[in-house]
Write a protein that binds this DNA or RNA. Structure first.
Lengths: 350, 350
DNA sequence: ATGAAAGCGCTAACAT
DNA sequence: ATGTTAGCGCTTTCAT
């Protein structure tokens, strides 16, 4: 160590250094610093002074190896650039940071093979638990982790057959409210641009759409329902298709933020005016919604809360591994702006 | 271990298990699996078979402790919800994932105290290196890490006095191009909505603005320059102020994506039409730019590449710690859409 | 080329 | 209440 100092390379102090300076054993240092009750006030003070003087920082890796657990939590998102997932990331990070846990972020990019690699990474990293939004059909990889006693929390998208804590949002209800809003504005031909039906979120949103139509006595017309990927250009193409229909829709509900951008782009390229010729509601209320022209009516999803709740659920389970699984569903809200016209204005035009 | 199996709790296999099954020593297992040249083909094969049969995954924590380094890289961003930083995150994650490194993400939320906590976390986590975009004025905390031989890469925002690798974008040049574009469209009163001048990015953008005006022989009018935080509502207020000027601007350049949204919101609330009454250019080309009405002319910043390049720089330095610091500046591009009108149309109107 | 054994820094079982 | 010591799973000398 002395020769290393001579090379001007700083070396982090260890428990042994603190113990020596304080004149106690390493065990006492460990106990004093971890707030164990079985250490006298005087020694605790001496240890803390010594620790401070050396600016000692415990080596987490060594602690992790010894205690067989880490203070890191893994997060798997299907698309880190999607603002909804970004909000989830922020919520998760916020709660974890406050609890002195760190966040290992992985992005599956909606690719199953890549998601499996994310899982491998997180397992190798030895994370204490994982929050995930999966694009996988088969949950066997997650089941393996579960068998290894690694707590899991599924967010937004959920998969049957995996007994884990979940945090979802009231997607069906949010969609129902939005479509009911369009119905109230006297729309009869309401289109739906939805994501892949293999995802629970897309199925829920479809359910909300159908129930709103049913409640209004309106038929579900297959030509008005478009299923595409959750990306911008898919919805762009879907909207183009809808606009070319012999009898095009007078309103459209788009089931995700990026898809809404694609749909808007297609409408702006047409001669149609929003809301005069077509009403638009999007799922997800994003930063840009108020800056659009006209400002967008949207179903707000509490992304931050989803992430924060998931992190809390995970931390709770870390303390009580045997607790029965919990399923939390958060509310959505319809934010009415101008993209459907005002109720009064529309009723006159209808 | 046997009694644990009886409790139906799976236990991860270790080198010892693989060694026993293959009939070799743990040292050989380690060597065979890490691709050391000094192990015979036959043994290597036996070890790999045994490893596969047990589906052995090396415990990274133990390896980290022994080798005194981790396969994790820390990332500090000032605002994870800002799409520009989200792109950086994705770029970084992409490169790290391919190199079998994991990413520990921390969000400083533009709060200096919180950024220091992020640093503590990353240090405790023992990350192999850190990519960061700092909101700190004083770089002493980073200097400490540097003294500890932890490689650092500064992205986007850079700070004098810290000898680290940097990845920036040609902000001044991008701004200059954008403002020159407005000049060419015969604008004389071109406003600037900028971020806090304490940040290198804001200073660079100011420099580009001033140089474009100077090149056109236009005066720099202080009433046309607004400095606010990098957030949406700051720019909203700034734009309101500009619009209330006795002699308001005919064009505005806004220096970040979220700020552009705020400025647009203010304009939409006024009777002014874009581009007829006011031209708008934003810094950062975001997903929503094409979906605005009219589509937004913007300076595109390669966020993904910034993150990816930073990660590569870090990985390189991990292999060559003594290499002199490198400073990479990536190009910006002006994406002309409709928010300034067409050059022809404008020249007629001017 | 392979094995035996030490030890990374910490915590926890055990001893006092 | 405090100290002694073993050992987490791995890599890496040091022998052979």
């Amino acid at each position: 160590m002395d020769y290393m100092r001579s090379l001007h390379v700083k070396v982090e102090p260890t428990v042994a250094d603190v113990a020596e300076l304080a004149g106690v054993s390493t065990a006492t240092v460990s106990r004093a610093l971890s707030g164990s009750a079985t250490v006298s006030e005087s020694l605790r003070k001496r240890v803390q002074d010594a620790s401070r003087k050396l600016s000692y920082k415990p080596n987490r890796i060594a602690r992790n190896l010894r205690t067989r657990q880490t203070r890191a939590v893994g997060l798997i998102v299907p698309d880190i650039e999607n603002p909804f997932y970004t909000s989830i990331v922020r919520g998760t990070e916020d709660v974890l940071q406050a609890a002195d846990y760190s966040l290992v972020l992985t992005n599956s990019n909606e690719e199953p093979a890549r998601e499996r690699r994310c899982l491998d990474t997180l397992r190798a990293e030895g994370v204490a638990g994982i929050v995930f939004s999966s694009c996988l059909q088969q949950m066997t990889d997650y089941q393996e982790l579960l068998d290894l006693q690694v707590p899991l929390v599924a967010v937004s998208r959920i998969s049957a057959g995996l007994n884990v804590d979940t945090v979802t949002v009231a997607e069906a209800e949010g969609t129902r409210l939005a479509v009911a809003h369009l119905v109230k504005l006297r729309h009869k031909r309401i289109a739906l641009i939805n994501g892949p039906i293999s995802l629970s979120t897309a199925r829920e949103r479809l359910r909300g759409y159908e129930s709103a139509l049913a409640a209004a006595g309106l038929p579900v017309r297959t030509e008005l329902m478009q299923f595409t990927d959750f990306r911008q250009m898919g919805a762009y193409a879907a909207m183009k298709t809808l606009l070319q229909l012999p009898n095009p829709p007078t309103a459209v509900f788009v089931t995700s933020n990026l898809m809404t951008l694609g749909a808007l782009q297609a409408i702006h390229e047409s001669p149609l005016d929003i809301p005069r010729d077509i009403a638009v509601i999007g799922f997800d209320d994003m930063a840009w919604a108020s800056s659009l022209k006209p400002p967008l009516t949207a179903v707000a999803q509490p992304g931050f809360d989803v992430g924060a709740t998931a992190a809390r659920l995970l931390l709770e389970r870390l303390n009580a591994p045997a607790r029965p699984t919990r399923h939390i569903m958060l509310d959505t809200r319809l934010i009415v702006r101008a993209s459907c016209g005002s109720p009064a204005g529309k009723s006159a035009a209808a």
